[in-house]
């Protein structure tokens, strides 16, 4: 499934790297801990998190993730968005909680 399809179906707000939505999503990973994502997320996974620290961009970039969905209406600092744009990482936001976003993606990717 393409990231653009996910954006449409979940009504995600695309904050950065609008040109990167054609990427194919292989899976998903839910975690708020950077070390956990570094250890366990897979290439082209979409990362679902509440974490908005600047380092999420570096983690997504190093792991080759398809993008980051920031859940729960969390505000994202301007410097994080700027960094994500530079690193070509798509940041998407939603008011929905992680459990529900994961649940919906799980059904779509099955």
């Amino acid at each position: 499934m393409k990231l653009s399809e996910l954006v449409e179906k979940l009504a995600l707000d695309v904050k950065t790297f609008k040109d990167g939505l054609q990427i194919e999503i292989k899976g998903a990973y839910v975690s708020d801990l950077l070390s956990d994502v570094m250890a366990n997320a897979g290439k082209c996974d979409i990362w679902i998190t509440l974490q908005t620290h600047l380092n999420i961009v570096a983690v997504a970039s190093m792991k080759g993730l398809a993008g980051i969905i920031i859940v729960g209406n969390r505000p994202v600092q301007e410097e994080v968005l700027k960094k994500a744009e530079e690193e070509k990482i798509a940041i998407l936001t939603t008011p929905k909680p992680a459990f529900e976003v994961a649940g919906k993606i799980y059904q779509m990717l099955k």
Partner: peptide, 20 residues
Amino acid sequence: MQEGYSTAPEWVREMGWGAG
């Protein structure tokens, strides 16, 4: 007071705190 702002070091975030 801004939501999402935190000065917590990484070890604190790894324990589930410092979300701002």
